[in-house]
Write a protein that binds this DNA or RNA. Structure first.
Lengths: 198, 198
DNA sequence: ACCGTTCTACACCGCTCGATGCAAAACCTG
DNA sequence: CAGGTTTTGCATCGAGCGGTGTAGAACGGT
């Protein structure tokens, strides 16, 4: 019926996501994006309407991917609950190294965006907030199970412990983006577990 | 000998710091700065040379202020070492609420800048790295003292524990900027202490 | 083979960016 | 009060920004 696309929208979205992830929203120009995607500006605007909408889709794509990976680990009933939290830390640290760019870790697009945009972009803030609630409730479920199973011995409210784990993850992400070494991040994660299994 | 300034450079620097803190480097234009400072652009450029140099000075000013406040707490020998770490968390959380803007926490300029610029601005990265080392060594000293005094019972390497505390602080800062409530942050801080006093 | 529709390439829009030039104003020194 | 120096106000610069208009190329349906 009409001329088909010469590019895969999903691949373009993933590539755009990685550029936003690395450079941030403001520092990524639409021309940067087009060059990286290998597409003309009119193609990008035709497919994604605006830089802001492209970013929203890229962030959503990141959240979906990250949530899927986290869910796979947190729902793995072959592991004990505490081990699942440990494995989540391990996966996050491994991903930092898998996604390095020019000897530098990228951190996490969610954390980066929270810092850069949450305070002045309500649409983005809403996306981030929804994702935060999902992560907190997923963590809380596992922590609750761990307390029932006895391998998470902290007597604190599981909601608080979930907040704590989530904050430590954010801290690890910031440290990674700040240039911390892998051993440093692993030590932070192991130490963080002590508060759950005390 | 010549016409004197009509403004206080220190106050201008502090005001600029607060604007960068709230909006980030890229999202703050030199025109924003001039309007907020109540100064003409030529005055700002005459005093600070460039946006980038102004930012470096603002960041340095922030680091000095923050370091002074943290040192005061961490060197307070009237408190036990563990209590000093606790007080540091408390101070950080209190400052988040003291510096709120339009019902939103600001986080920490150091964390925000690490996320936004550390990966692509070597000068800024060097400033942040130097500050990070100072903070880690200050924390490590207190943690070492706590272990000697017996109120920090974790057997982990004090350097790792210092990294851990610093990461938790970064995580709290991100959570604050993401809209977490005060009780949430306090729960994270209390939980984090459990890993030191287990 | 042609038509209708969509996509692509390229030029271009108005605007804002960081930064500068210049002349008038304001001060201190002598 | 005149001379020398710096600051200030305003205009302006080239570059890059996000976004658009348009003409023609590339397809699928008939």
């Amino acid at each position: 019926m009409a001329r088909p696309r010469t590019f895969d929208e999903g691949i373009a979205l993933d590539t755009a996501m990685r550029l936003f992830w690395r450079k941030g929203y403001e520092a990524t120009s639409t021309r940067d994006l087009c060059e990286t995607l290998g597409l003309d500006r009119s193609s990008v605007y035709n497919a994604f309407n605006s830089k802001h909408e492209l970013f929203k889709r890229a962030l959503t794509h990141y959240i979906e991917t990250t949530t899927a990976a986290a869910t796979e680990i947190l729902d793995d009933h072959t592991r004990s609950p505490a081990d699942r939290i440990r494995a989540l830390f391990g996966r996050i640290i491994a991903d930092e190294w898998a996604n390095r760019h020019e000897d530098r870790n990228q951190g996490c697009l969610t954390v980066n965006t929270t810092v850069e945009l949450a305070g002045r972009d309500p649409e983005i803030a809403a996306l981030l907030d929804r994702d935060l609630r999902h992560r907190l409730s997923a963590l809380q479920v596992v922590i609750g199970a761990g307390r029932a199973a006895g391998d998470i011995t902290s007597r604190r409210d599981p909601a608080d412990l979930a907040r704590y784990v989530n904050s430590v993850i954010a801290g690890i992400r910031v440290a990674a983006r700040g240039g911390a070494g892998r051993a440093d991040l692993e030590a932070v994660a192991e130490t963080a577990m002590d508060a759950l299994t005390r």
